[in-house]
C-alpha cells in the first residue's frame, strides 16, 4: 500500500513537470482564446487568415519582417488559400530588388509568387535604429518563439493600458498588461476601424488582433492542418495494428504457461 502511494506521488510529480512549461512565472496569464486551430483536429479559419494578412500588410509590415515566408505560401493549401490570381497580384504590388543584371547593376521589379516577403528594413541594425533602439522581431515564427503562443500575442495586442500610478515610462515606452516586465517599445497600433476589411467584417481592435494572431499562428506553423490530419490517421492506424499485435501475442503466448 505504501509503495502504491509512492508511485502515485511520483506520477503526479511527473505530471507537474510536464505541465510546468504551460505556466508562466512572472507575468499574468495571457487571455485564453478558443482558437479554431486548437485541438486534435483544429484547422485555420480561412476568412480570418485572409483578414489577418491584410492587417499584417497594412499595419505590422511597416516595421516587422517575415523573411521566411514567400508570397506563394499565401495560396498554398492549409493557409489563407488566396487564388493564384490574387497571389500574383499581391506579389506584384511589392517592388523587389533583384540582380545583378548583365551590367552588374541591382534593379527592382514587381514581385513574383516565388519571392520572399519583402522586409521593411535591409538589416537588423537598420530596423533597430529606426525604432528607437528596439528591434521589431521577425514574425515568421513569432508564435512559436513566445511562451503562451497565440494567446500571448493576442493578449499583448489588446493589453495596452494607462500605466498604474507610480509607474513612470520613458519616452517611446508603453505600458502593457501582458508583456513581460509590462514595458513595451511597440506603440498600440490598433484602433477601431483602422483597416477596411475586404469582406466587410467590422474591424474592431479585438477582431483585428484575433485575425492577425491567426495569421501569425499559420505563418509559424503552415503545416498545422496537414499535421493534424496525418496525426489522426497515424494514431488510428497504430491503435488498429496494436490491437492486432496484442491478439497475436496472446495467441502465441497461450502455448506457454506464463501470462503476458
Amino acid at each position: 500500500m505504501i509503495k502504491f502511494n509512492i508511485k502515485l506521488f511520483i506520477l503526479s510529480f511527473l505530471l507537474l513537470i510536464l505541465l510546468r512549461p504551460l505556466q508562466s512565472a512572472e507575468m499574468i496569464d495571457p487571455i485564453k482564446v478558443n482558437w479554431s486551430f486548437k485541438g486534435l483536429t483544429g484547422t485555420f479559419d480561412r476568412a480570418s487568415l485572409q483578414r489577418g494578412f491584410q492587417v499584417y500588410k497594412e499595419v505590422c509590415a511597416s516595421c516587422h519582417s517575415m523573411q521566411y515566408l514567400s508570397y506563394r505560401n499565401l495560396g498554398e493549401p492549409g493557409g489563407p488559400e488566396f487564388s493564384e490570381q490574387e497571389v500574383k497580384a499581391i506579389a506584384a504590388s511589392f517592388e523587389i530588388e533583384d540582380g545583378p543584371d548583365s551590367q552588374g547593376e541591382m534593379f527592382t521589379r514587381p514581385g513574383k509568387p516565388s519571392d520572399k516577403f519583402k522586409s521593411p528594413y535591409p538589416n537588423i541594425q537598420a530596423a533597430t535604429a529606426a525604432n528607437g533602439g528596439a528591434y521589431p522581431p521577425d514574425m515568421s515564427v513569432l508564435v512559436k518563439a513566445r511562451k503562451g503562443g497565440a494567446n500571448y500575442i493576442y493578449s499583448v495586442l489588446v493589453g495596452y493600458e494607462d500605466p498604474p500610478p507610480g509607474v513612470t515610462l520613458d519616452e517611446g515606452v508603453y505600458y502593457n498588461k501582458y508583456m513581460a516586465g509590462n514595458k513595451i517599445k511597440m506603440p498600440n497600433n490598433l484602433m477601431d476601424g483602422l483597416v477596411e476589411y475586404a469582406d466587410g467584417t467590422e474591424s474592431s481592435v479585438d477582431q483585428m488582433a484575433k485575425d492577425v494572431t491567426t495569421f501569425l499562428a499559420w505563418a509559424a506553423e503552415p503545416e498545422l492542418e496537414e499535421r493534424h490530419r496525418t496525426g489522426v490517421k497515424v494514431i488510428i492506424y497504430l491503435i488498429l495494428l496494436t490491437t492486432l499485435v496484442y491478439l497475436s501475442m496472446k495467441k502465441i503466448w497461450s502455448r506457454v504457461d506464463t501470462e503476458v
Binding site: 492506424y237 497504430l238 488498429l240 495494428l241 492486432l244 499485435v245 491478439l247 497475436s248 495467441k251
Partner: peptide
C-alpha cells in the same frame, strides 16, 4: 488470419 492481418497492416505502415 490474425498473423496475416498483422503482417499485412504492418507492411502497409
Amino acid at each position: 488470419f490474425l498473423f496475416t492481418a498483422s503482417y499485412t497492416i504492418g507492411a502497409v505502415g
